[in-house]
Simulated assay, not measured.
Amino acid sequence: MSVQAEEEQVAPAARVAGAQGVAPAAGLTSAPDAAIDQALGKLDSTQLRDEYVDQGSFLYLSDFLPRDATQRLIDAANALMPEVNRNFIPGHKAGGSVSRHTIDRLQPYIAELYRSPKLIAWLEKITGDRLQLSPEDDPHAYALYYYTRAGDHIGWHYDTSYYDGRRYTVLLGVIDESSCILDYELHTRDDSKPDEPGAVQYPPGALVLFDGDKLRHRVTPSREGEVRVSLTFEYVTNPNMRPWRRFISNMKDAIAYFGFRQVFRKALQSARVGGGKAGGSV
């Protein structure tokens, strides 16, 4: 299959002030842990853990983040529109992405939310696993995904873990002025249960949690004039990655998501500092 990658900015006209009734921000001050406290106060985690297990490591909550935290994510997504790297893989995906490296530099609130100890503790309770942050050189650790043109989509896939352990995906709805649907299939890796199809159109503030190697999923194409932005967090049970898997993962991320400059930025920086010899992991 031929691969074509576009690296271009999204037109400023694609910016939107809010989504689905969430008003523009004004002096928001909520810290990430306070926002998570508010989110968890209305949840029965024991019941949600059972639901997660019954669905084969999948959970959907239509209303998770509080209003002010959601608005901060909307504001961040709008501010990062000029930083979007667009990619096109014929027959599989089209859309834009902003990696954790750019987020760290320009919108650190997202990184703070990702690292929230209270969020991680709750995710551990639901998954039953001890979770760790993705390594600092992983551009997917937290990233924004933009559908801003007609036909933007991603085909059926798994969030395959190239790490030695499991990798869990958290999707957070940010902006959804679109007709896009997250289609998924449960139990595809469990021979004792039939595949179970499902679909959600997760709004701003919604949460989706799943084991990346177990959930087969896709996002249906957007239409002309629509805007959809989602945020992903990735947590791992073992941050080690074998060299050949690292190479495959880096190439996939460079071609299909963030561009070579973002993915290999640490190696390039090391090469400049070391006089042309790259050192350490990329």
Results as ranks from 00 to 15, higher is better:
residue 274 G to E: 14
residue 69 A to W: 05
residue 2 S to I: 08
residue 221 P to W: 02
residue 167 R to I: 08
residue 162 Y to M: 10
residue 250 N to H: 04
residue 157 H to A: 08
residue 279 G to E: 10
residue 77 A to E: 02
residue 91 G to F: 08
residue 193 K to H: 14
residue 132 Q to V: 04
residue 256 A to V: 06
residue 72 R to L: 14
residue 39 A to I: 12
residue 128 G to P: 11
residue 122 W to H: 12
residue 258 F to T: 00
residue 123 L to D: 07
residue 213 D to P: 03
residue 41 G to P: 03
residue 1 M to K: 09
residue 46 T to A: 15
residue 89 I to T: 15
residue 62 S to V: 00
residue 35 A to C: 10
residue 202 Y to T: 14
residue 56 G to R: 02
residue 191 D to L: 08
residue 13 A to H: 01
residue 1 M to W: 08
residue 72 R to Q: 15
residue 199 A to C: 04
residue 36 I to C: 06
residue 88 F to C: 03
residue 79 A to Y: 09
residue 92 H to D: 10
residue 257 Y to M: 13
residue 219 V to D: 03
residue 72 R to W: 01
residue 173 G to N: 14
residue 115 R to E: 14
residue 131 L to P: 01
residue 76 A to Y: 04
residue 14 A to G: 04
residue 36 I to S: 06
residue 36 I to E: 09
residue 278 A to H: 08
residue 26 A to I: 02
residue 40 L to T: 08
residue 183 D to W: 01
residue 191 D to T: 10
residue 194 P to T: 12
residue 192 S to N: 11
residue 87 N to V: 15
residue 193 K to E: 12
residue 151 G to S: 10
residue 142 Y to S: 13
residue 113 L to N: 02
residue 160 T to Q: 15
residue 50 D to L: 13
residue 183 D to Y: 06
residue 134 S to R: 10
residue 226 E to P: 04
residue 4 Q to G: 05
residue 16 V to A: 14
residue 80 L to A: 09
residue 14 A to T: 05
residue 168 Y to S: 00
residue 244 W to I: 07
residue 48 L to K: 11
residue 235 Y to F: 03
residue 141 A to C: 09
residue 37 D to K: 12
residue 32 P to V: 05
residue 115 R to H: 14
residue 31 A to F: 04
residue 245 R to E: 09
residue 55 Q to L: 10
residue 3 V to K: 12
residue 270 S to E: 00
residue 68 D to Y: 03
residue 99 S to M: 12
residue 258 F to E: 02
residue 8 E to K: 14
residue 264 F to A: 14
residue 133 L to N: 08
residue 200 V to S: 11
residue 213 D to Y: 06
residue 140 H to C: 10
residue 167 R to F: 08
residue 16 V to Q: 15
residue 171 L to I: 13
residue 51 E to K: 13
residue 109 Y to N: 04
residue 94 A to K: 05
residue 36 I to A: 08
residue 69 A to L: 06
residue 157 H to R: 05
residue 114 Y to D: 10
residue 75 D to G: 01
residue 36 I to D: 11
residue 58 F to Y: 07
residue 147 Y to S: 13
residue 234 E to L: 09
residue 223 R to Y: 03
residue 96 G to H: 15
residue 273 V to W: 07
residue 6 E to Y: 06
residue 49 R to H: 11
residue 170 V to T: 00
residue 262 Q to N: 13
residue 148 T to K: 10
residue 181 I to L: 00
residue 248 I to C: 08
residue 201 Q to C: 03
residue 115 R to W: 02
residue 197 P to H: 06
residue 93 K to N: 09
residue 54 D to S: 04
residue 15 R to S: 14
residue 276 G to V: 07
residue 279 G to T: 05
residue 196 E to I: 14
residue 192 S to G: 11
